[in-house]
Amino acid sequence: MSDSHQTVVIIGSGPAGLTAAIYTARAELNPLVIEGEPSSTGDQPGGQLMLTTEVENFPGFPEGILGPQLMADMKAQAEKFGATFSTRKVTKVDLTTKPFEIWIGNPDENSPTHTADAVIISTGAQSVMLEVEGEKRLLGHGLSTCATCDGFFFKDKKIAVVGGGDSAIEEATFLTKFASEVTVIHRRNELRASKIMQKRAHENPKINFLWDSEVTEIFGSNSVEAVKIRNTKTLEETELDLEGIFIAIGHKPNTSLFIDKLSIDNLGYIKTEPQSTKTNIEGVFACGDVQDHKYRQAITAAGSGCMAAIDAEHWLENRQS
């Protein structure tokens, strides 16, 4: 057994992981949260809310709260009750042994970095990219996945947001603070975004919509200059000149660590038992966006993090008796 044996290890530190940390810490299970490493894509410590600005729908904050601030507060709350944090990324897990084995750093090391009696997985989800020509090359050069980080650099420029869900519409609305014109490019002829976000976007004179359209190529020598658009109904192709493009077409669960190790559904999400956070392996629990492709809200993630903590606590108790 490694030196670093833990009762509970929580992998991931968005609202789900941090709520699980608060509850397991208060239950005196001394959780270790392996919170991930900084990145700009969605798998960073604090999770996807680290890339947002104002959160208006988290109960308890009538004036709204900044996403990074909410996450800093949740972390402080978990630390207050004794949760400890490792700012590393898990590189491998072995869930066939008891205790479970967890590696950070080199996955080929013989012995794991940590062992744990119970594991709570809350690795969340990250942005899906378009996977079209020009995208990788122009990332950071007019192509962005983080409006709050990069909007500032598009003052008085003509830009586009690709997507039709809440995050796309939120980004489009935010970007009108800087850009002269924001075109929302969406595959369908209606938005998936919530009614309030849609209303705001429709009322914003800087936002216009390109329906039934998908981006098939991004052009630009040193930075984005234009995109190729294909109409999804007529298949007609056109070009649109713009200086910036923000991608918000959706998210995919961060489950690469658990493929062939846990039951995963056909969309890539970890399967949990109904009304529970139990996975197909006893002692392994999953919460938040990594097991939820339906609600995907900070508050539902936090709620399921609480469930995972209670499920883990019960499981540990029953196992000992």
């Binding site: 490493e37 900084p38 990145s39 700009s40 894509t41 960073q44 700012t87 590393r88 990324k89 990332l139 950071g140 050069h141 007019g142 962005s144 983080c146 980080c149 990069d150 500032f152 650099f153 598009f154 040193n222 930075s223 910036g244």
Partner: peptide
């Protein structure tokens, strides 16, 4: 030509020698 932050640029002898875009560990 910063269009995304964080961007890190390493200057060597006064000249940009390396550019890293995005947060990392």
């Amino acid at each position: 030509e910063i269009m995304s932050i964080p961007t890190l640029i390493v200057f060597n002898d006064g000249e940009p020698a390396k550019r890293l875009v995005g947060a990392q560990g």
